[in-house]
Amino acid sequence: MLHDERTTTTIDRDTFTITFRRTLGAPRELVFEAWTSAEHVVHWWDPSGVRLAECAIDLRLGGRFRFANAGHAHSPPFEGEYTKIDAPSELQFLAMGAAGTVRLEVAGTGTSMTVTIRCANAEHLAKFVELGVADGTARTLENLAAHLAR
């Protein structure tokens, strides 16, 4: 298979930032389009894999977006505004008290994607976590120690 399975997640408690890195098989232009056009976003945004009930995108600087699933009550819609649009390499947005950055680099026939979510502070992070989340598995203290030691 051509797809590279390398995926990493880094948590930096210093800056309340979580960084996800992935290598995707699709070309960069398509990945950028998948992030910025409603017809694509409806298919993949919801973590449970369900198609979004509502997806509105106004792709311009300061333009707003709103992604909502059918079960609103449990997970409020994800909404915010675009703060940087540099197709096809970078997208930045502000949403739910956090700043998101999507960076795309060409990697062979595919794309290397880095998604960074930076929360303004611990309180915002707490709120962000509350949104649409079931209970997660706690990582062990050993994992955490290894992480802190990095």
Partner: peptide, 30 residues
């Protein structure tokens, strides 16, 4: 702190897995 970050992290990981899977349906064999 860690327990509290875990769901957030998992939610985004699932979302990005979803993106990956979706893109594969569009461009199955580059």
């Amino acid at each position: 702190v860690d327990r509290w970050l875990a769901p957030f992290r998992e939610q985004w990981e699932r979302r990005l897995d979803g993106l990956d899977a979706y893109l594969r349906t569009l461009a199955p064999a580059p």
